[in-house]
Design a binder for these strands. Structure first.
Length: 586
DNA sequence: GAGGTTCAACCTTTT
DNA sequence: GTTGAACCTC
């Protein structure tokens, strides 16, 4: 039988995870142990064994991951009919296909959600805690059914009022997608206990599923669907939004019969990095994992006087190890013999996004190209959002809702517009349309916004959900370009770089003072295990926090790494020349 | 209801 | 040091 390339060169545990079709499979996949590989290989194996592509559903954590996996499947010459998607996208499609036209709802983005929530609170005459309450409600909706029982009266009232508003206006927020899909599936199952939408379900990043998503998995699995859940409980870093590593444990009992497989060979990190990362977690779970990479590697820690000198050193170091491509080092010939070829092999990670700006500033000064993730422009997003409402209004969908999202004056303008005018607007070419839209919305668009917005017009025409479609496009870092990547540790999950800097390794930042220590440890673990060759940890003694200077201590997590950590002096003791005798001699 | 002032909070984030 | 929510005034 012809072997698909995706099925070659699997190690023993990987092969087992791929080929076990008789049971549900839970795979513990530590960093760099070939998680994506197992997932794609299992799909290939299923297809090779005659499983119908349409009966396979693979769930990933992000749209980006889904696209990448589809790409792999396509390149391997396998059927593109396997559904590889996110929980939310699947739920959206499922609901659109299943619900009658009247019951179908519009999905609202974050901005509209805030506005609507604000309105609801106002109608209830509650003030001063909008964002705290919204956060709370969102958290409760990570459970199916939403977990209201232990909540105070006020929270329940707000929850119900908010849900009523959404229902009355035919709206879904992102969390509703999961909840409604689960509830709808449950109804279908009650009507037909043998219901089973898929024969095989594969779920990636299982350590980050919420309870609602876990329930959805159970409902999707039905009675005899085979489920493979793969993840690393040590990398569960989204507790603040409802994910819980406990579901990996629960899987074993809830999805019976279940085979548990640990991937024991790590292909990314050198052993020293695994040991160091493991020690931060108290050596849980990683003990048996062995690295394939034999090369010696170092973890270097440096403490600086000020966040400025920290950032400046990072910039110099990057320039140095990538062979010095900045003007200055070319001129001065300070480039070192390090064999890194590209700035794209370097990432600078941090706990809080704000720190990215400090580092960006120094890189800018040093002439080192960089890209900053999550560098979003709220004003721009709002313009896009308004344009979307305008387009949907013109298309005649959910008119009341879209109108209600505009400021009163704009709303009036639209309401009094004649039918002929509206029709004319719809047929306009992009440039002219944007010109008109600018007038209607009372907003100017600069040239880069015009490009963004005309792209938006195009994707809207293709029926895509704009607020989301554009957002993901903006956020995406490009790892092909010659630039250092700057991002939060959260954003680095799933990525890999030869050289990783983690800045701000200070008590109060990492661990974050208001965070939960175990999750902060896992976060540090995720950061450390992104690197394949070199790790630099830095800290500052003073940091400016919201306009105030604060004295900082190094992160207590550094202690756990013991001798695996090389502490370099920020200012190596200079060999002082013997000074001439001073006047003040005793 | 628009426009100005004050005061508090400030993390991580996918869909 | 910045933002945004709440409160005040016209």
């Amino acid at each position: 039988m012809k072997q698909n390339p995706l099925l070659q060169y699997l190690n023993r545990q990987q092969g087992q995870a791929v080929q076990d079709l008789d049971a549900n499979v839970l795979v513990d996949a530590g960093p760099g142990t070939g998680k994506t590989r197992v997932l794609t290989a299992r799909i290939a194996w299923l297809l090779q064994n005659g499983c119908e592509p349409g009966r396979i559903l693979a769930i990933t954590f992000t749209n980006k991951a889904a696209t990448e996996m589809q790409e792999r499947i396509r390149k391997a010459g396998l059927s593109p009919d396997v559904c590889i998607t996110t929980f939310h996208s699947w739920a959206f499609r499922f609901l659109s296909e299943s619900l009658s036209k009247e019951k179908r709802s519009v999905v609202i983005g974050e901005q509209d959600q805030k506005k609507i929530f604000g309105k609801v609170l106002k109608s209830l005459d509650i003030q001063g805690k909008t964002s705290r309450l919204l956060e709370k409600i969102q958290f409760l909706k990570q459970f199916y059914p939403p977990r209201l029982r232990d909540e105070p009266e006020e929270v329940r009232t707000v929850f119900e009022a908010y849900q009523d508003y959404l229902k009355a206006h035919g709206l879904f927020d992102y969390d509703d997608l999961i909840i409604s899909a689960a509830s709808f599936l449950e109804k279908l199952r009650d009507a037909d206990p043998l219901l089973q939408p898929f024969d095989h379900l594969l779920v990636d990043e299982f350590q980050d599923v919420s309870q609602a998503q876990y329930r959805l998995c159970q409902l999707l699995a039905g009675r005899s669907c085979r489920v493979m859940a793969i993840g690393d409980p040590n990398q569960s870093i989204y507790g603040f939004r409802g994910s819980d590593p406990v579901f990996m444990e629960r899987f074993v009992t809830d999805f019976h019969p279940c085979t548990r497989i640990r991937l024991l060979t790590a292909y990314r990190c050198p052993q020293k990095f695994l040991d160091a990362a493991g020690s931060v977690l108290g050596n849980k779970g990683l003990a048996e994992v062995r690295s394939e990479r034999k090369k010696e590697a170092e973890i270097i820690f440096r403490q600086f006087k000020h966040q400025r000198s920290e950032a400046a050193w990072i910039a110099r170091k990057i320039d140095n190890i990538t062979g010095g491509i900045s003007f200055e080092s070319l001129n001065q010939g300070t480039a070192s013999g390090h064999d890194l070829k590209s700035l794209s092999q370097v990432a600078v990670l941090f706990r809080i996004n704000r720190m990215g700006e400090n580092i960006a500033e120094e890189l800018e000064k040093a002439g080192i190209p960089f890209q900053l993730a999550r560098d979003t422009d709220a004003g721009r997003e709002e313009k896009l959002n308004m344009l979307w409402h305008l387009l949907e209004f013109l298309a005649g969908r959910n008119i009341d809702h879209h109108l209600s999202m505009f400021q009163p004056d704009i709303r009036k303008r639209l309401e009094t517009m004649g039918n002929e005018m509206l029709r004319k607007l719809q047929g306009m070419p992009p440039d002219a349309f944007l010109e008109m839209a600018s007038g209607i919305l009372g907003q100017g668009f600069d040239s880069s916004e015009k490009i963004l917005l005309s792209n938006a017009l195009e994707s809207h025409r293709q029926g895509r959900f704009l607020p989301l479609a554009m957002k993901t496009e903006q956020d995406r870092l490009d790892f092909q370009i010659e630039a250092v990547s700057l991002m939060s540790i959260h954003a680095a999950k799933g990525l890999e770089f030869p050289v990783v800097f983690i800045a701000g390794c200070e008590d109060g930042i990492l661990p974050w003072e208001k965070g939960e220590v175990p999750e902060e440890r896992r976060l540090f673990y995720v950061g450390l295990t992104r690197a394949s060759r070199q790790i630099f940890l830095t800290a500052a003694r003073t940091r400016i926090f919201w306009g105030k200077t604060r004295k900082m201590q190094p992160s207590p997590f550094l202690e756990d790494m013991g001798r695996l950590l090389v502490r370099e002096e920020a200012r190596p003791p200079r060999k002082r020349k013997k000074r001439p005798a001073q006047k003040k001699l005793f």
